[in-house]
Design a protein around this nucleic acid. Structure first.
Lengths: 212, 212
DNA sequence: TCAGTAACGCACTAGTTAGTTACTTCTTGC
DNA sequence: GCAAGAAGTAACTAACTAGTGCGTTACTGA
């Protein structure tokens, strides 16, 4: 790995671990768990393959670590939205826009989640950190709904989990199936106008769902 | 493959081809393109591996054939719905119920589509058969929308492709991500009550989207 | 009936792949 | 300043995997 004449890289366990994790995220997202190659991950991380086994244990454990990190990343981003400062309608629209933008900006998140579910979720063991983050997220949506009901703009009785799933679904499905969609429906799913139209349609869908 | 003393199987090219295709669909759906094993597909099809290369050319060509068949299957099933005989509201609700039921009864369809898109759709070349079937499907939805507008129950200007995508999305996402969903949201996504609730929520979502 | 062809099967190969062994080099706490 | 352990490396292996060469067996049509 090291070229003759180069200085040996300064030893930095955290940096090496992080480089491996980033390379693994990219490769697992691109090719799936079975399609990704440990050697290629090591090469992209500028690390020796042995280090992967040293820090993570094995290919599947590395995949596990990538998944947990990906989920924590999105939950952290969601927390930074500070939706509780906004009026309920604006808060909800902002959540729909954020979800859409997050999927667009982090396409690897979608394929990682797909891979996790192809393997029936067995790499995402119950994690208190993740479940706490999810609970906080559901509470946040519940609070927006409650405030909307009090304000008389939202109808009561909406399940925040179902609403969450729907908000994710209408963006996620469009983007994850954009390749087959483009072929079957004979329109470019990724051109600017198409993306704007879809976002507008999704905001409309969610608003009609919750408004009185 | 053949046990001593058994009669050689009667030669039937169509049957062998079909057995290979069925085994391939099952294995590709279960493990993805990279995870599936050609030897295992041959074993499950009770066929010699050589026959896969004889009939289909190679692993990727076999995957291609599986994909096209899967799409033609769902489009055929959709055509048998005969929604044009129903009043617009009933027709649309029936479409939502059908889509949901189809994903539930054919879980391999979902993972095959996911795999196709992981590989950026390159195994689903432009196929006149598939595109014709898709066009007919979009027309069917367009016709329901038009009739609804004439009847004064649906609002005008709804894009049938966007509506289709949304109908698919709200069922597909829930089912494809049921494993990670069950862990993160701490509720069983597949128990009867949960499935009923989701279907009801989805019908509600679509109706609120189209009704005046 | 028999030659030609399509279906089928066995055994092999060349290349790949996750994981390991056995080592060297650097850093740090004392 | 030095022992001990952590970081890093190269070469290896055993198992696997897609694909093939080549021969055999059963239909089929003339």
């Amino acid at each position: 790995m090291r070229v003759v004449g180069e200085q040996p890289r300064a030893r930095d366990a955290n940096a090496t671990r992080a480089r491996i994790l980033a390379a693994a995220k990219s490769e697992f997202a691109r090719l799936g768990l079975a399609g990704a190659r440990v050697d290629e991950i090591a090469r992209q991380a500028c690390a020796n393959k042995r280090m992967i086994y040293h820090y993570f244990g094995g290919k599947e454990d590395l995949f596990r670590a990538v998944l947990v990190e990906a989920y924590l990343d999105i939950r952290n981003a969601e927390q930074e939205l500070e939706l509780d400062h906004l009026p309920p309608r604006e808060a909800l629209e902002r959540l729909v826009r954020f979800t859409w933008a997050y999927y667009l900006d982090n396409p690897e998140f979608i394929t990682l989640v797909n891979s996790a579910n192809l393997h029936r979720g067995k790499h995402l063991e119950k994690s208190e950190r993740l479940q706490t983050a999810s609970r906080r997220f559901v509470s946040m949506v519940q609070e927006i709904l409650d405030r909307g009901v009090v304000d008389g703009v939202f109808r009561p009785g909406i399940d925040p989990v179902q609403l969450n799933i729907t908000i994710a679904a209408i963006g996620y499905y469009y983007l994850t199936n954009r390749f087959t969609g483009t072929i079957l429906f004979e329109r470019d799913f990724m051109e600017n106008k198409a993306l704007e139209d879809r976002l507008a349609f999704n905001i409309d869908t969610v608003m009609r769902l919750v408004l009185v």
